[in-house]
Design a protein around this nucleic acid. Structure first.
Lengths: 94, 94
DNA sequence: ATAAAGTAGTTTATAATATAAACCAAAATT
DNA sequence: AATTTTGGTTTATATTATAAACTACTTTAT
């Protein structure tokens, strides 16, 4: 009947992050922070969780002298997102 | 960009309950418990929350000698569900 | 040159949530 | 009459989301 909803994706902020990353080659910390209208702390925590799950990859470098955190969605992440959306449909369709 | 997700509906079990109620005239406690594959305690708590928010109405009666808790979705609940689905679409549509 | 403000984050604390476990009362079963 | 089942509620616990506080540096103003 109802499919399980991956708890890692069933979170407003993490879902927003994944949704953004799905449409882009990559995105940096500040971009995600602005687009999601969230706080740095919250973003930081959620990126870690997504990264630990293997849903995104994170690269830390420097943009000139400033730290730069770049995120990409992984294949596993794309799959998880698609599965999540499919599961969701068992709740909201019709 | 992303719309807020009503935290009351952004919960697997409450969403399942609402989804069920949306398609029925009414449903009783046991039915909801079985269809959602959840525990009585969890159902009880979530029904209270939905009821307090005015998303459902709860009627307690007896079926012969057995207690019977009957739930109906309210107009407010239907509206909230629709809004939730629309908000959700800002995250999952491509 | 140095103080103040801004950037790009991380870590820690707190409040809210979901969930399960324990419990209760009555009814049905053995 | 003791045990199990039914239909729940209440309480406890573990997880989560979120914000607040902090770090480390850079840029800007004085």
């Amino acid at each position: 009947m109802f499919k399980e909803l991956d708890p890692l994706l069933h979170s407003q902020l993490r879902l927003a992050i994944m949704s953004l990353l799905l449409g882009l080659d990559s995105a940096d910390f500040t971009f995600l922070k602005e687009k999601t209208n969230s706080t740095a702390g919250n973003i930081s925590v959620q990126l870690d969780k997504l990264s630990e799950a293997g849903y995104i990859s994170i690269e830390k470098s420097f943009n000139g002298k400033k730290p730069l955190t770049t995120c990409k969605i992984t294949k596993k992440g794309i799959k998880a997102f698609e599965d999540y959306v499919n599961s969701l449909k068992t709740y909201i369709k019709n």
